[in-house]
Design a protein around this nucleic acid. Sequence first.
DNA 1: TCTTTATGGTGAG
DNA 2: TCACCCTAAAGAT
Length: 267
Amino acid sequence: MPEGHTIHRLARLHGERFAGSPVRAWSPQGRFAAGAGEIDGRVLLETAAHGKHLFYRFDDERLLYVHLGLIGKFRTFGPDAPDPTHTTRLALANDRATAYLIGPMSCRLVVAGEADEIVGALGPDPLRRGRRGAAEFAARLRRRRLPVGVALLDQRVVAGIGNVYRAEILFLEGIHPETPANTVDEESAARLWETTVVQLRLGLRSGRIVTVDPREVGAHRRSQLTKDERLYVYHRDGLPCRRCGTPIRRTEMGGRAIWWCPTDQPR
DNA sequence: TCTTTATGGTGAG
DNA sequence: TCACCCTAAAGAT
């Protein structure tokens, strides 16, 4: 279930568990047998996340590049891992940990130049340090004439937002998803960026997307919220807005569903 | 035991 | 804009 926070979390976790010593690698499914064979036994130097893209640098020319896509998953275990399923594209293991990669959109070895190209095509990543992030985001957003709801999913505008965060962040900022991106003023764009940074950081820390302020549902901590209380609009069509009670609306935007509150996010 | 859906992205027309 | 890729879990029958 991957938006940017999930990928950064994996980079951190796999860096902690695997970096600094040789890693066993194989492909139970077979589809990545050759690539896994090249990695097998090498020392992992470091991991890195850029938006939804994940890189593993070994003591080698080539990097392992993984993109989970919509349905991809990485399952990470301690020393007592179960056997991999036959759908496991790549298994990584050392004495302390095991990770199984299932259903990724991309899993391949790339040379440094290709990795640079992939990263270079991305907009600023709210989970990376960078003083330029806010200004860069505002410039890229305001250059587009598309609806802001479409622009936020474009990884060249901002890297790491997915379908849940785009809907939730627009709600938090009170912006209607159909608002043309080039009509979002500098100040709104700055707030949009700041909210994105805050929300993705929360997601990175907890491992799940919880945008609701716990006080709004009578709780004290985000971790206490039930599954139904974590989001303001995503997947809530027809249900009353948590703030104003207006039924949440749903539409298709660029082939994907988006939800919003017609009262709190006026046109 | 089916069918549908999902936090993503690409390539063809 | 659409078909398609990848997999598992939830929902419908």
